[in-house]
Design a protein around this nucleic acid. Structure first.
Length: 544
RNA sequence: GCCGCGUUGGUCAAUCGGCUAAGACGCAUCCCUUUCACGGAUGAAUGACGGGUUCGACUCCCGUACGCGGUACCA
C-alpha cells in the first residue's frame, strides 16, 4: 500500500504542464519502473456497441494497446452496453473484428474472458446498485422521483436567454421531487408504491476538483458548475458515470484513456472515486484530442466520410436496422499496418521526422506525454500516402492474399502465384490502395476490354501496320522471350524500317495494356508471353 | 449563456527563451523515364491579436478573439 501511494504521489504531484520538458523527460524514464513496482499496468477500451468503429475510436484502442504493451501491462476490452435503447446487434462482434484486423487484440474481453469477467456491463448489472445505495447512505447521492415529463417541465420553466439549459443541480434540486426535499415518510411511501426512481449524485456547491491529466496537466473544475448526474437509471442500469468508476475499480484499471469529450464530466468521476473510498486506486487520466472534420469544424463523423468520399470506419459496417452499408478502411484497400501507422500519427509523434513506424517501433517509442492537446483535422490524402508507403515497404506475400481476393471477386482466378508475384512486384509502386492493383494489373491476366485507339489512330500509317506485322514474325523467332532482347529486337526492327522507336512504342503499349499507363512495355510483353503479345497486336491492328 | 479545453503554412507537425521557424502530405516547376508511376531537385505557403516578463518570446504570464467539447434516466 505504501509504494502504491508513493507512485501516485510522484506521478501526480507536479503538474506536467508546469514542468519543463527536460524535467519531464528526466522523470518519465523512471515511470515504467514505478509502475511495475507498485502495480501492473491495466488499461481498457470501453466502447458502446452502437455502430461502426470510427478512426477516433480506433486511435483510442491503439493508444491503449501501445501503452499496455510498452509497460508490460494488460489491455482490456469492456463493452459498455448500459443503454438498451441504443444497443445494436452485431456491433460488438464488429468491434472485435476491427481489433483483429489491426492486430490490436485485448488480453481480456467478453470473447477470451479474464480474471475480472464478465466484461459486458449488461451482464454486470447486479453489481452497480449497491454502490449507488452506499452513496445514498453516505449522503453523497439521493433518490429522485421526477418523471421525464417533470424534468422537461423544469427545463422549460427555468430556461432563459442566460441559462438556455437549466441543470438539475445544487440549486434546482431543491425544487424537485427527491429524497432531499420529500422527507422520509413520503420517500418510503413512493418506494412502497414502486414508483420509478433514479439515484443522482449530490454535487457539492463551491468545491474545487482537480484532475491531473497525462496530456493536459492540471485541470480544475468547480463543483457548482456540474449537475447532479444520474448514477443509476430507473431500469436499474447504471449510467456511464457510475459504471466506469465501478468497473475501473473492480477491474483494477491503472490508466484511463478516453476522448476529450469526457473531460467536462471527469469531476463527477473523480468525486465518485473519492466518495466510494477508492481514491488511492484511482487511475491516471488522459483525455485524447478529438479527430476533426477535414473541412469545416467539429468532430469527424460517419456523415463526413459519406459526404467527402472517404472511409471513417475501420471496416465495412452494415447497419442491421437500415441495411445501410458504410465502407471501411479495410475494404477500401488499406493495409492494417498503414492504418495503424496513420492512426498513431494523428495527434502523436516521437519528436523526430520519422513518420513510418512498425507496431514494434510504436510500442517502444510511444509516450502519452507527447500526445497533442489540440485536435487534428483528418486528411485522407495523407492516409493514402501511408498506405502507399506500406505497400512499397511490406513483402508481397504479406498482402498478396488480399489482392488475390480482389481479383477473384472480379472473376479473375489466379492459377500461377509466381506470375502473380512478378506482376505485383512490377506494379506495386503504382498502387496507393490495394484496389489499385486491379486497374494496374488486370491486363496481365486478360486482354484489355477496350483500347485507347484514339490516342494513336490519327498518326497511324500503313508503315506502322507493316512494322507490327514484321515484329510479330520476328518475335516469333526470338530464342529468349524476355524484356531486354525483346526491346533490342523491337528497336532494331524500327531502325531498319526507318521508323523512330518513339512512334511505335506508345502504340505497342496501348495494344498490350489498353491505355497510357503501366510498367515498361517489354516487361509486360515478357510476362504475358509470346502468344498473348502477338494476339493482342493482331487484334489491335484489325481495329486500326 | 455557462463551464472546460485548445490555437505554428491548405493539412499533419518540430521547436525545451537565441529563429535565417525542421520535416511530411498536398500543390507548382524541373530532371529521370519515348507511358503511368517510383525516385531526385527546386519553389510557393506558417507563429490569431493585444499587453506584459526578459538583453532576447513561436516558446513564459495576463487579457481578447476565434475554434472545439460539454451542458440527457447517451455514451
Amino acid at each position: 500500500m505504501k509504494e502504491l501511494g508513493c507512485s501516485f504521489k510522484i506521478a501526480t504531484s507536479a503538474p506536467l504542464s508546469k514542468t519543463s520538458k527536460t524535467e519531464r523527460e528526466n522523470r518519465f524514464p523512471f515511470l515504467p519502473y514505478l509502475y511495475t513496482m507498485s502495480k501492473k499496468v491495466r488499461v481498457r477500451f470501453a466502447p458502446s456497441p452502437t455502430g461502426g468503429l470510427h478512426v477516433g475510436g480506433m486511435r483510442t484502442v491503439l493508444f491503449n494497446y501501445l501503452f499496455a504493451k510498452q509497460q508490460g501491462g494488460d489491455f482490456v476490452l469492456r463493452i459498455e452496453d448500459t443503454d438498451q435503447n441504443r444497443y445494436v446487434p452485431g456491433a460488438e462482434e464488429y468491434i472485435m473484428e476491427c481489433l483483429q484486423w489491426c492486430n490490436l487484440l485485448p488480453d481480456e474481453s467478453p470473447y477470451n474472458g479474464g480474471a475480472y469477467a464478465p466484461y459486458r456491463q449488461s451482464e454486470r448489472k447486479a453489481l452497480y446498485k449497491q454502490y449507488a445505495e452506499q452513496l445514498v447512505q453516505g449522503g453523497q447521492a439521493y433518490y429522485a422521483f421526477d418523471t421525464p415529463e417533470e424534468l422537461e417541465e423544469m427545463r422549460t420553466r427555468y430556461r432563459t436567454a442566460d441559462n438556455p439549459q437549466p441543470q438539475y443541480n445544487h440549486i434546482l434540486r431543491e425544487q424537485m421531487r427527491n429524497s432531499l426535499t420529500l422527507g422520509d415518510d413520503e420517500v418510503n411511501r413512493l418506494m412502497g408504491e414502486e414508483m420509478p426512481y433514479v439515484i443522482r449524485i449530490k454535487m457539492p456547491a463551491g468545491e474545487q476538483v482537480q484532475l491531473t491529466d497525462m496530456i493536459r496537466g492540471e485541470v480544475h473544475f468547480s463543483t457548482s458548475e456540474v449537475d447532479d448526474k444520474v448514477l443509476l437509471k430507473a431500469d436499474g442500469m447504471p449510467t456511464y458515470h457510475l459504471a466506469v468508476v465501478v468497473d475501473d475499480y473492480l477491474m483494477k484499471i491503472t490508466h484511463a484513456f478516453r476522448g476529450e469529450e469526457w473531460l467536462p464530466s471527469s469531476p463527477v468521476h473523480i468525486l465518485l472515486w473519492k466518495y466510494l473510498g477508492w481514491e488511492e486506486a484511482m487511475p491516471q487520466w488522459a483525455h485524447l484530442p478529438l479527430i476533426l472534420k477535414p473541412d469545416g469544424h467539429g468532430k469527424l463523423s460517419k456523415r463526413d466520410g459519406d459526404r467527402l468520399g472517404f472511409p471513417v470506419f475501420a471496416m465495412d459496417w452494415k447497419d442491421p436496422r437500415t441495411e445501410e452499408l458504410t465502407r471501411g478502411f479495410k475494404e477500401r484497400g488499406f493495409l492494417p499496418e498503414a492504418f495503424v501507422n496513420m492512426l498513431a500519427m494523428l495527434g502523436w509523434n516521437d519528436g523526430t521526422a520519422q513518420e513510418i513506424f512498425t507496431i514494434e517501433e510504436l510500442v517502444s517509442r510511444f509516450s502519452m506525454e507527447r500526445v497533442h492537446k489540440g485536435g487534428a483535422k483528418f486528411d485522407y490524402e495523407k492516409a493514402k500516402w501511408f498506405n502507399h508507403e506500406w505497400i512499397k515497404k511490406l513483402p508481397v506475400e504479406n498482402w498478396l492474399p488480399a489482392v488475390k481476393k480482389i481479383y477473384e471477386e472480379k472473376g479473375v482466378m489466379i492459377a500461377d502465384d509466381n506470375k502473380f508475384i512478378r506482376v505485383l512486384e512490377l506494379i506495386r509502386e503504382r498502387a496507393t490502395l490495394l484496389s489499385d492493383f486491379w486497374e494496374q494489373g488486370v491486363f496481365f491476366f486478360q486482354a484489355p476490354a477496350s483500347i485507347d485507339a484514339a490516342s494513336i489512330q490519327s498518326k497511324w500509317t500503313e508503315g506502322k501496320t507493316a512494322f507490327f506485322n514484321a515484329f510479330i514474325a520476328l518475335a516469333d523467332q526470338l530464342p529468349d522471350w524476355s524484356a531486354a532482347p525483346l526491346e533490342a529486337a523491337f528497336k532494331e526492327l524500327a531502325a531498319s524500317q526507318n521508323i523512330k522507336a518513339g512512334e511505335v512504342l506508345l502504340p505497342l503499349r496501348i495494344m498490350l495494356v489498353g491505355g497510357k499507363f503501366g510498367p515498361g512495355v517489354f516487361d509486360i510483353a515478357a510476362i504475358i508471353g509470346k502468344e498473348e503479345t502477338a494476339g493482342r497486336i493482331r487484334h489491335a491492328l484489325q481495329l486500326l
